[in-house]
Design a binder for these strands. Structure first.
Length: 559
RNA sequence: CGCGGGGUGGAGCAGUGGAAGCUCGUUGGGCUCAUAACCCAAAGGUCGUUGGUUCGAAUCCAACCCCCGCUACCA
């Protein structure tokens, strides 16, 4: 019954806390999407996990005198805590450190290897004589051979966006100590990406539903030509190459981490005691797979992962990759080392989750970068969330609770105006449905908010607080209508504001979870007992703006 | 220099050929159920500049001006 929706979300790197950029870019939109589909009655599987391997974690571990797994586990636990508090509803949030993931990665590697899509080659690798280690791509810097800008890294030039390999770099040096590296021969494995060019092109041209920026970026990339890429590194912290004679070499993260989508599904299936269940999300025509990522991750999900899947064969390709752009903070680019970021655990220690979810949804960087500012946070909370929606709910519920013995009033008949409002509610529910289906989150939320405004207008016209003095039934009628619309709002806002929707659900006298009632206008029964209403949201003091802004830039985070 | 992203009423933004929109703010009025919240009305824009294409341009083309990013970490 219904569709089957696989939702893969970018794997956060476990070497530091999450910040608002992560949330706006991938985790919030995926969660909205997942909650929406679950409410629609579709079968959803939303997975991700912490990315625990790679050089940055080993270096951080060395600095702090810990083992890499300690660092990784510490942040993994923190991620889990953040998901729970912010309401990011993963069906499974695992990590790349599991035996299962290693097993699935090995299978993937060996399958591609046996089919000739992975081959061995000896390459000259940069080795820093001072640090006594091979330098992985991102630890070597130099001048880009294409655009001649300095500061290009060994895997990619941030200036022109071209992928490069360390040997191509002009004037290379170790990023840690600036020593010029020596190049030593080392045997590595390469993924034959070039072999997939034509198939990828054919496939992509059919993806007309992709976001324009995702499609353009990807097409340009493929047309420029795809080069085979090394998928192993001389590093001890990771998933070992599953062949004899390659001690000290591991799978490179970009190859390994994306396999996590599959391994997480298999882990989920195992833990639900139906090992074969993973197939229902990866094979056949019944499931669609969506990947929520930031724009920096596009090619890995639109080119490399699809090519890997083509090579592996018999697994579904992505259906959509609604990549978001970036979030700036107070008008400036986010920077973790300069502490120019809003850390999620920090936010959650002081504020409620729904106001943040509201702000990031209504300003989601879907088509371009957007800015987060504390001033906007307070304004949108106070003047929109509280004033328009929260107040609507509160004025209706408190009045009904007081005037109708705490029960849903009994309506007699709807006049045309009342019927029209009900119709608008249903239309809006339908509009939000369509917008969410297409991952237009901002627009969907705007539509929902406009229904709250329309309902405030309706109330003003009906003025049940006046009517009750002469015509109690007229008052009951309009209040019943208002309650119905509020019930409808609770459903369409649930993907965005799950905590307050659930509260409202209960205030209205419903039991169970919002999600279980489906994507429909759920009419409360006349006489249904209401819970004593409390405001759904609170106004925020404008003083916090200055306080929070002053934390930026020079506050050390111990997170 | 170059590359990328932008310049739309006070603020933040939507709007890729056909009568300038949204949210907030401001001003005036209404209401008093509600978290001084809600509702109505009004003011406020030569859509960065100049030229071009077109019956018609914020929307397409060209040139120019201005802003932001392009420093490791960073979605």
């Amino acid at each position: 019954m219904g569709d089957r929706i696989f939702i893969g979300v970018a794997w956060p790197y476990a070497d530091g806390p999450l910040h608002l950029g992560h949330i706006a870019g991938a985790y919030l939109p995926s969660d909205i999407f997942a909650r929406y589909h679950r409410t629609k009655g579709n079968e959803v599987l939303m997975v991700s996990g912490s990315d625990q391997h790679g050089t940055p974690i080993t270096i951080k571990a060395e600095q702090e005198g810990k083992k890499p797994e300690e660092i990784a586990n510490q942040y993994h636990q923190q991620f889990l805590d953040s998901w729970q508090k912010l309401g990011i509803s993963f069906d499974l949030f695992t990590s790349t450190g599991t035996a299962n993931h290693a097993e699935v990665s090995h299978d993937f590697f060996l399958t591609l290897f046996n089919r000739g899509y992975i081959y061995k080659a000896t390459v000259s690798q940069p080795f820093c004589p001072h640090c006594q280690r091979f330098l992985t791509d991102r630890y070597i810097e130099g001048t880009c051979p294409y655009c001649y800008s300095s500061g290009a890294r060994g895997d990619q030039c941030d200036k022109c966006g071209k992928p490069i390999s360390p040997v191509e770099l002009i004037d290379p040096h170790c990023q840690l100590c600036a020593t010029t590296p020596q190049f030593k021969d080392s045997e590595h494995f390469f993924f034959r990406l070039s072999a997939f060019r034509d198939r990828l092109l054919v496939w992509m041209k059919r993806q007309t539903h992709w976001r324009q920026n995702v499609l353009n970026f990807t097409m340009r990339y493929v047309e420029e030509g795809l080069k085979d890429r090394a998928i192993t590194r001389d590093i001890g912290w990771g998933i070992p190459v599953p062949l004899d004679g390659f001690k000290g070499k591991c799978l490179y993260v970009w190859f390994e981490a994306v396999i996590g989508y599959l391994s997480a599904t298999k882990e989920w299936a195992k833990s639900s005691r139906d090992e074969g269940k993973w197939r229902s999300f990866w094979q056949g025509n019944e499931a669609k797979s969506y990947y929520f990522i930031g724009k920096d991750n596009i090619i890995f999900h639109t080119i490399i992962w699809p090519a890997m899947l083509m090579g592996y064969d018999s697994l579904n390709l992505p259906y959509d990759i609604p990549a978001n752009e970036f979030l700036t903070i107070e008008g400036k680019k986010l920077s973790t080392s300069r502490h120019w970021a809003v850390w999620l655990p920090d936010y959650l220690s002081r504020y409620e989750p729904d106001p943040l979810r509201y702000l990031l949804s209504i300003t989601m960087p879907e088509t371009g970068d957007t800015d987060f500012s504390w001033h906007e946070f307070v304004r949108r909370n106070n003047d929109e969330l509280v004033a328009t929606y929260g107040n609507l709910v509160h004025r209706v519920l408190t009045f009904v609770y007081r005037s109708f013995e705490g029960c849903v009033p009994m309506p007699r008949e709807f006049d045309s105006r009342s019927q029209a409002v009900i119709d608008v509610a249903k239309d809006t529910l339908n509009t939000v449905d369509k917008l969410l289906y297409r991952c237009h989150f901002r627009e969907a939320l705007r539509s929902a908010m406009s229904l709250a405004q329309e309902t405030n207008r309706y109330l003003e016209e009906k003025s049940p607080w006046k009517a009750i003095k002469q015509d109690r039934q007229a008052s009951a009628n309009s209040l019943y209508v208002a309650i119905c619309v509020i019930s409808c709002l609770k459903t369409m806002l649930y993907p965005f504001l799950p905590f307050s929707s659930q509260k409202l659900h209960e205030y209205l006298g419903f039991e169970g979870r919002v999600e279980d009632d489906g994507w429909q206008l759920h009419f409360p029964l006349p006489g249904q007992k209401l819970l004593p209403p409390e405001p759904l949201f609170s106004k925020l003091d404008e003083g916090l703006i200055e306080e929070e802004v002053s934390r930026l830039g020079h506050v050390k985070h111990n997170l």
